[in-house]
């Protein structure tokens, strides 16, 4: 049998490994900051320790917000929340999306058409709009509902991709061979289909991670995301909006943190793609 990993002709290009490394480094910044907050933050996030909108100082590296809370602490907690949202949404999106995609790939022609049409309709809705609908339908906004909402919103894209990839694999002769030799369908899925489509899916997951982080920031900006005291970057941006002339750092820093994480994930996706598809990397 043939899986993509079995075609090792071309070495991953230098460019490929460079983007991968830059992506990992940018993501690493947030991983370190986010994990650190589990054990330690510069200040108690709720402590109104400084003055109103203090500028950066030795005591408060990034200054304070209107209530005198340390901004650096808030941004670090924002890293943790962004990572949780990204990872959570991707896991949920992957579980739902891959399951639906495989179902569609295996389904009878009629069911496949119905599922494909339903997925196309879902994809036509912007991710953020879908997530807002899910949040609105739930009792009250929380970090959990935001993650579930984003996961559901992302699952349609994953499902469509899975369906196409799985169908392509299913058409291969070796699947027929495997079936003829008595391999059960579940074994076919786990031994042949998933390993073959995994490299492409993982690139997609990395991209979806970035999308989920941006969408969560937007939800929080609108007051639909994680409620206070969760210091989501979107909420920090929203709270700093009114003071953007007098204390611009309050809006700029969460923005920079968001950009670093999303660019990092995009580089990572790029690097993964080059690795998964070495021919493409070499062709450049």
């Amino acid at each position: 049998m043939t899986t993509i990993a079995d075609i090792p002709q071309a070495k991953p290009s230098r460019r490929g490994s460079l983007t991968l490394r830059v992506g990992l480094a940018l993501l690493g910044i947030h991983l370190v900051l986010g994990l650190l907050t589990v054990f330690w933050t510069p200040y108690d996030p709720a402590a109104m320790a400084g003055g109103r909108l203090s500028p950066p100082s030795l005591a408060h590296w990034a200054g304070t917000d209107r209530l005198g809370r340390d901004l650096m602490t808030q941004i670090m907690i924002g890293s943790r929340i962004a990572l949780m949202v990204g990872a959570g949404a991707v896991v949920i999106g992957a579980l739902i999306g891959v399951t639906l995609g495989l179902l569609a790939a295996f389904a009878t022609r009629f069911l496949d058409d119905v599922l494909a049409a339903a997925l196309d309709i879902l994809i036509a809705f912007p991710t953020l709009l879908l997530a807002m609908l899910v949040v609105a339908a739930s009792e009250s906004a929380s970090l959990g509902t935001a993650i579930v909402a984003l996961g559901i919103a992302l699952s349609a894209i994953v499902a469509r991709l899975t369906r196409i990839l799985a169908k392509r694999v299913l058409a291969q002769d070796y699947i027929t061979a495997a079936r003829t030799s008595g391999t059960s369908w579940p074994m076919v899925v786990f031994k042949h289909i998933l390993p073959n489509i995994w490299p492409t899916l993982s690139v997609n997951f990395a991209l979806q991670f970035g999308l989920a982080v941006i969408a969560e920031a937007s939800l929080s900006y609108l007051g639909l995301g994680a409620p206070p005291p969760n210091a989501s970057w979107g909420r920090l941006l929203q709270e700093a909006q009114g003071t953007v002339y007098t204390a611009p750092l309050g809006a700029i820093l969460p923005g920079i943190a968001l950009v670093i994480l999303v660019i990092g994930m995009n580089f990572l996706a790029d690097g993964l793609r080059d690795r998964a598809d070495p021919m493409r990397g070499a062709a450049r």
């Binding site: 709720a46 906004a141 709270e239």
Partner: peptide, 27 residues
Amino acid sequence: NYDPHPIVAQFLQNALAEVGVTVDINI
């Protein structure tokens, strides 16, 4: 969900925590 309510709610959350009262904020 509009200013200044969310930030005022956080202030109250902190102030009431000082006397042992827990506040949840629902936006």
